[in-house]
Design a binder for these strands. Structure first.
Lengths: 218, 218
DNA sequence: GGCGGAATCAACCTTTTGGTTGATCGCAGG
DNA sequence: CCTGCGATCAACCAAAAGGTTGATTCCGCC
């Protein structure tokens, strides 16, 4: 049969119920399983796989940190089962900071939707992902477009990553250890970041980055 | 009939669908209306009231800023319609910062639940609120208990003001000029702030203050 | 194959912060 | 009335951050 089998991953029972109600009523889509965190998700995906009825799409909430691992781990399933492509991962989150989007895309997500999206948009995204395509929320797409259009000096992925750590209040030394690089390198990156953001200290960099939604405010 | 009439307020269609599915199936509870923001909520509540079938409970998401106004505004309905008690407002949110909880309780919310709560807990909270009682999520209750036991040192108004400027990326000198005080005084204030927030540098102070909603980053 | 950009590191120096101690002033509460 | 606390300032030292120069490696691209 031509039914799209969806796996829900979200730590909020309310959200899972909402997605179930929203997607389950639709022709051609079936919610086959759910999980509340990344670990349970991987276990569930493996179980479905051994049962011979793998999920077609993983719809996953992007929680800080834990969610991202889920994406990469899902991608790694492929490595173990050569020939079997891993199910596309569709990110569904509340925030739309550049850092999150870049991290998700880099980790191999095939879509990035916002939770305040209308139901039809989410359905379309699921269908698109299942068909092997990609799906970006209009807001997200607009952000990326503007990023290309504008001569606003683009921060490299590494620089954005650094900004994220910066915003947590870590010192240069702590950041260096976290990223397995030297303090000198951290300082070099910071100088570049300051230049691109038109700023001359770390707090101002955080302020600008938060305002431009380059990083997210927790 | 003895049916509890619930009004849903949440800007996420997904969450609304989830709550509808979760509460609607339950005996004695009916979701009578929904709104995506505070303004629509007030309009909807007024409309239901004039129709003679007012809502018994308002289940409201707490978004930064806008949500809180909704609670106070809902409370103000009472003022206009003397004798008619306003429906109890049950807060349902993702975060559980002290500032949010206190603000909600102070604004007159009769409950504070987290979105990752199990369905049964949310149902109980609705029933409790409808009966005129209060409902706090266990995590929230624990937080408040701990706060009473060892109250966190409160920041003075001046210190909060300084934090605000700090978050804009200003250096000590700039802050001093802005506030017409000396740099030495700025440093003294900062030392106090660091002590109270359990932190040892300005970026971490901003991070903690933002997380506790002591300051707000637009 | 070379060119440029990203990422990495080192050494050096200046400026800014952080931390401490101590002091004065004014105001509110017991 | 005196005690405590917030706000204000000073001087000093140590640590961290900011800025510069220069160098290496690894990419992708023309």
């Amino acid at each position: 049969m031509n039914n799209i089998r969806v796996f829900l991953v979200d730590d909020h029972p309310v959200v899972r119920a909402g997605l179930r109600a929203m997607l389950g009523d639709l022709e051609g889509i079936t919610v086959v399983a759910e999980a509340a965190d990344g670990g349970a998700a991987l276990a569930g995906l493996a179980r479905l796989h051994t049962l011979g009825e793998p999920a077609d799409v993983v719809l996953m909430d992007l929680q800080m940190g834990a969610g991202m691992d889920g994406v990469t781990a899902t991608g790694r399933i492929k490595a173990g089962e050569a020939g079997e492509p891993p199910p596309p991962v569709l990110i569904l989150t509340t925030y739309d900071s550049d850092a999150d989007i870049l991290a998700a895309v880099e980790a191999g997500a095939s879509g990035y939707m916002l939770k305040d999206a209308p139901p039809e948009q989410i359905r379309q995204a699921v269908l698109s992902a299942a068909a092997g395509g990609t799906a970006l929320a209009p807001e997200v797409a607009a952000r990326l477009m503007g990023r290309i259009r504008n001569p606003e000096p683009a921060l490299s992925a590494r620089e954005v990553q650094l900004l994220g750590l910066l915003a947590t209040g870590m010192g240069n030394r702590a950041i260096a250890k976290q990223l397995f690089i030297s303090e000198a390198t951290v300082k070099t990156h910071l100088v570049h970041i300051y230049g691109k953001l038109g700023v001359d200290n770390r707090t101002a960099a955080i302020a600008v980055a938060a305002q431009r939604r380059i990083i997210r405010r927790p």
